[in-house]
Design a binder for these strands. Structure first.
Length: 882
RNA sequence: GGGCGUUUAGCUCAGUUGGGAGAGCGCUUGCCUUACAAGCAAGAUGUCGGGGGUUCAAGUCCCUCAACGCCCA
């Protein structure tokens, strides 16, 4: 068989993905308690970015692990219609064609978006497949599917009937470019260098007196309905109740007192503009002030602003207002002022607080149980610190503005009678007004916030409101894996909705992972242009290498610093595995008269590698269970690379050369194959493709009961395989071999030169071990003969080393640089003496002897004699040099 | 303004009940040893951010200061 020297993942990854998908392995199989993960649905507009890679790799690893444990496993996939984002995208296309959504109208825009969705909406799904994601694609959902739309309407009507949805006037965050309301969470705040203008408002009594107010937004003064001061501000006591003249408008406005006013801000006098500032809105409510709207939805000044301002943008208006105030001598001074300004999370336009009719969900009644289930541990966050973040938000929850003034989304199921104004909320469009019987009904123009469909994800995807078999079987799900940014937007709301409508928790564990950042610590984002294209990476190194590298570098919940450099670890590892496999295939055509494992004649290396395999299996299992995926990765990586490749394979080489049919040869072949196939099981969740390829190939030589690795059993560690005594014997061999290699290096012996070694051992067991496994020294340290014994004569001249209580000598026939050797030994002596002093100090301390745990004291004593022995032996060697 | 997180080898980061400082990459030296140079072998490298405290014992617990980052208002 011809196997290439370097691993090329492209064909292999595609081949096995197709195989799994065609064979239906992604669907839940079997009986028992299922394991379910809900995908955080990516935007239908999306293309895969590095953050998706992290999120979906973590999910796939967990899903594959549980599938291998034999649980009926479901990873339920889907995409989100992403209201504003998607509409924006299509609107951009319209702009290129020189038209707008208002010109083509609602119907046509929706047709365009659906066409766009059908054409490009599956891109991200296809990309997830390239990553190896083992979702059950037959269950793929879309938030605007018939099934999910039905759930949305059902929920809206139900909440409305329960009084949990209401319509109200409210000051909301408004994006004048997207022409829509934004939820608080959709507004991004950034500190900006602005100005504070001090403006004089004259008294209405025609005296020359005036008060000075400070504002960051002079254009909104046109909507002022009052000036407010703090009631405890002694400077303005007599001002309260007075009337002022609002400059540029001539309107008369009152001075009121309100605790909200900060005495130290500006002059302590503030203008009150209820229709254009959220705090002023609250003040206005408390004082029953009118709400004077002076801008339209595009942030263009309207007639109420006055004829000379109408039609100006908010920025043009500001210029004009300032200019006129200046002319009239009413602008007292200007100061620099840094303040936070809100921006639209989509288009970064400055948001405008805006008064309008909106729909709201009352959140407090829903939050109560969602708090309980986290308090009593039914739902756990990992890492646990996110619990506090969740609780803080839930305990201060505000009503949720769910209406959006766009067209793409679930339209609000509210209808208005054109005749009598009656409002009807219903799942199906009513034919007649239930009050006046008119047929002239008009549906609410607004659509629902995108999150209003995704907060129903745990049950809407399973067919709710019908009581489907899937709901019975898979709800509640187990683990939700997502980013902490959407704890409020999504996670908390799913907990509330699922408790409210299904009376169960949606999942029991929430794993929050970090953000992917670049090497400067900046979040990877399209706008910064610092995000690599994952598909390009997959083309270069393969999905397995990418997955491995991400997880290897991602401790639970921590941010990942990504740079292309981390990919090397994964790529090199795939290549390492590939070559180990290649070596096996080059040497093993098959196993003649395949023995049972019990019949094998296992030698030290065999027993040792099985023992290490068992330890690694146990570790991997624990780490997978605890979602400590990077720990699992590290353990398996270390086992395959260091234990299996560097030691076991190297030691097996000589045995493979032995006569065909010899017991040692047969055993080595068996163990090579067996440990390899078991390693592939451990690694499969992380690197699914290469492991399947190798495992399937081994299956042709070696009996394996399952038909595919993806559904093969995840190994369990057997206690009997973990043999500390064997480990210790092998460790002594390894330490000795390394010491000899080190000696060789000291005198720069070429690799081809064979050496004779003399070992002065301390007991017979050591002699027996060295005797029995001379071959190990020969293969791994190029040792021709090793003469060992308790009373061997120390050769001279020689360089030497100490392993535990054994002295190793490499005799030198030629010249020995005595000075250099003396220096080397002295360095070791210095180090050991320092160690010994430290240990002695501890043991001489009565407090330590009395207070420390007995096993710690015993350990310290053992260490003392060990170090002391070694020290004495090296000192002896130093003397012998002279 | 409030909350959270981070600070360990040149870089990116592990380090779970306090008890001999680790990985990957990088670096030095020697090797094309027929599985792998994307490799092998041998090495060097840390006042565990500063200060204080608890303890026989602190990277690990407590207090404090500093720098950086994130979230919320």
């Amino acid at each position: 068989m011809e196997i290439s020297k370097t691993y090329s993942p492209q064909d292999i990854e595609k081949k096995w993905y197709r195989y799994w998908e065609d064979a239906g392995y992604f669907a839940p199989k079997g009986e028992g308690k299922p394991f379910t993960i809900l995908i955080p649905p990516p935007n239908v507009t999306g293309i895969l970015h590095i953050g998706h890679v992290l999120n979906n790799t973590l999910q796939d690893v967990v899903v594959r692990y549980h599938r291998m444990k034999g649980e009926p496993t479901l990873w339920l996939p889907g995409v989100d219609h992403a209201g504003i984002a998607t509409q924006n995208m299509v609107e951009k296309e319209l702009a290129k064609e020189g038209t707008t959504r208002h010109e083509i109208g609602r119907e046509e825009l929706l047709e365009r978006i659906w066409a766009w969705k059908n054409e490009k909406g599956n891109i991200i799904i296809d990309q997830l497949k390239l990553l190896g994601a083992s979702c059950d694609w037959n269950r793929q959902r879309f938030t605007m599917d018939e099934m999910l739309s039905r759930a949305v309407k059902e929920v809206f009507v139900s909440l409305y009937e329960d009084g949990l949805i209401y319509k109200g006037k409210y000051i909301i965050n408004w994006c004048p470019r997207c022409v829509t309301a934004l939820a608080n969470d959709e507004v991004e705040h950034a500190d900006e260098e602005g100005k504070l203008w001090y403006i004089r408002y004259p008294y209405a009594d025609k005296s020359d007196r005036y008060v000075v107010i400070a504002t960051t937004r002079p254009e909104t003064m046109l909507g002022d309905v009052a000036v407010a001061v703090n009631p405890h501000d002694s400077r303005y006591k007599e001002l309260i109740g007075q009337e002022l003249i609002l400059p540029l408008t001539g309107r008369s406005i009152p001075v009121i007192a309100d605790d909200y006013v900060d005495k130290d801000f500006g002059t302590g006098c503030v203008k009150v503009t209820p229709a254009h500032d959220p705090n002023d809105f609250e003040i206005g409510r408390r004082h029953d002030l009118p709400q004077l709207l002076v801008m339209d939805e595009y942030a263009i000044m309207n007639e109420e602003a006055g004829a000379e301002f109408a039609g100006l943008s908010r920025y043009q208006c500001r210029e004009k207002v300032l200019e006129l105030l200046q002319q009239q001598g009413l602008l007292e001074k200007i100061e620099k002022h840094e303040h936070a300004v809100g921006h639209c999370y989509r288009c970064t336009t400055s948001i405008e607080p805006y008064l309008s009719d909106q729909w709201f969900v009352k959140m407090q009644p829903l939050a109560r149980r969602a708090i309980e289930v986290v308090e009593n541990g039914k739902i756990r966050f990992q890492p646990a610190r996110w619990t506090k973040v969740y609780m803080h938000w839930m305990n201060n929850i505000r009503d949720w503005c769910i209406s959006r003034q766009i067209w793409w989304g679930h339209r609000i199921p509210a209808y208005y009678c054109e005749n009598c104004g009656q409002m009807i909320v219903a799942k199906e469009a009513p034919e007649r007004c239930d009050k006046c019987d008119s047929r002239r009904l008009r549906q609410d123009e607004d659509v629902l916030d995108t999150w209003f469909s995704s907060w129903l994800w745990p049950f809407s995807t399973m067919g709710w409101p019908d009581d489907t078999p899937d709901i019975k079987r898979f709800l509640p799900t187990q683990v939700l894996i997502t980013a902490p940014e959407i704890i409020y937007l999504w996670v908390a709301r799913m907990i509330m909705s699922t408790l409210h409508f299904k009376d169960v928790i949606p999942f029991d564990t929430v794993l929050l992972h970090g953000t992917v950042r670049d090497d400067l610590g900046r979040k990877m984002s399209k706008s910064l242009g610092n995000s690599p294209d994952p598909i390009d990476i997959i083309d270069r190194v393969g999905a397995d290498a990418l997955r491995f590298s991400m997880i290897f570098n991602t401790p639970k919940g921590a941010d990942v610093i990504y740079s292309d450099a981390i990919l090397e670890t994964g790529r090199n590892f795939t290549n390492k595995i590939w070559n180990a496999y290649r070596f096996i295939m080059m040497n093993i055509e098959g196993i003649e008269g395949l023995p049972q494992r019990e019949e094998l004649e296992l030698e030290l290396a065999d027993r040792w590698i099985y023992s290490r395999l068992a330890e690694t299996t146990l570790e991997a299992r624990n780490h997978y269970e605890n979602l400590a995926l990077n720990d699992a990765t590290q353990a398996i990586f270390h086992f395959i690379w260091n234990d299996y490749c560097s030691w076991y394979i190297e030691l097996a080489k000589d045995r493979l050369k032995e006569d065909a049919g010899s017991s040692s040869r047969l055993t080595a072949k068996y163990v090579l194959l067996d440990v390899m196939q078991a390693s592939m099981r451990l690694l499969h969740p992380i690197m699914p493709h290469i492991t399947e390829e190798i495992w399937q190939s081994i299956k042709e030589l070696f009996p394996l009961p399952e038909e595919a690795l993806i559904v093969a059993e995840f190994p369990e560690a057997k206690d009997a395989d973990m043999q500390p005594a064997i480990r210790d014997e092998m460790a002594l061999m390894q330490e000795s071999i390394s010491a000899i290699r080190n000696l060789r290096k000291q005198v720069n012996l070429p690799p081809a030169t064979l050496v004779k070694i003399v070992a002065k051992t301390a007991d017979d067991a050591q002699n027996a071990l060295f005797e029995a496994y001379q071959g190990y020294f020969n293969r791994l340290a190029r040792v021709e003969t090793i003469e060992s014994g308790k009373d061997v004569e120390k050769p001279k001249p020689a360089i030497s080393a100490v392993v535990r209580n054994i002295e190793l000598f490499l005799p030198l026939s030629g010249l020995l640089d005595i000075e250099q050797e003396r220096e080397r030994l002295q360095k070791q002596i210095d180090k050991l003496e320092k160690d010994l002093t430290g240990i002695k100090k501890k043991l001489d301390n009565q407090n330590f002897i009395q207070n420390a745990k007995p096993e710690v004291v015993a350990k310290e004593r053992g260490k003392y004699s060990e170090v002391k022995t070694k020290l004495e032996l090296i000192q002896e060697q130093l003397q012998d040099l002279a």
